[in-house]
Amino acid sequence: MLEIKNLHAGINDKPILNGIDLVVPTGEVHAIMGPNGSGKSTLSYVLSGRDGYAATEGSATFDGHDLLEMAPEARAALGVFLAFQYPVELPGVGNANFLRTALNAQRRARGEAEVDAPSFFKLARAAMKALSMPDDMLKRNVNVGFSGGEKKRNEVLQMAILKPRLAILDETDSGLDIDALKIVADGVNDQRGPEFSAVIITHYQRLLDYIVPDRVHVLSAGRIIRSGGPELAKELEANGYAGMVAEAA
């Protein structure tokens, strides 16, 4: 379970999150929506431990572990996964090597046995098939020369292989055409289960047609101003953020 209490955070002393309270129970998928600049990406970076994004007040725990005190790799080993809005290119690093190194680093940190190369490739090929990714994407350098859609699919592939317990998807739908959107949504839906939680950060309601969330939260000026069921996303789509933001102010 992810529990965020009165979280204040910012970048280089500039406050962006102004007291977030959010609980995502194990097994649930929650969507966070909000206008540009509301703090959505900052929240994802604070939860995953990016340098320069410091919490100044409040707490964020996952299954009782204080995330804010942990190194990014320790959060990953605990099962926290961030799907990047802008996946990073790694020239000179093969995708297969990257994925296996990451998987085994997490397994080592958890005291589990490492996965050998044949078992890894079996696992990876199955995951790629499910995401309609050609096999040669394993041989290419990580995200180098990938289209926008391929990069996002590669994020979901990493999620499928690393099998996190808490996935944070930061605008994974941006830049995707409708076919890619469905593939990505299927990839997330495949992970859903009693042990999997997700925070889906999105600007648009469209993705939520395919990944139906248990709860929807609206973020504005670094605070959650409304929470509701999936119907809240539809309301936003119809009326926009302006009215809701004005009402909260």
Binding site: R75, A77, A102
Partner: peptide, 29 residues
């Protein structure tokens, strides 16, 4: 590149392993 470092660490690679991987990638060419 700090972006690359964070990307690797967010996937579970300890800092030293992430650096080593990026250094080898740099030499690969």
């Amino acid at each position: 590149d700090p972006e690359q470092m964070f990307y690797l660490r967010s996937r579970g690679l300890p800092e030293a392993e992430a650096r080593s991987l990026l250094v080898r990638a740099f030499l690969a060419e």
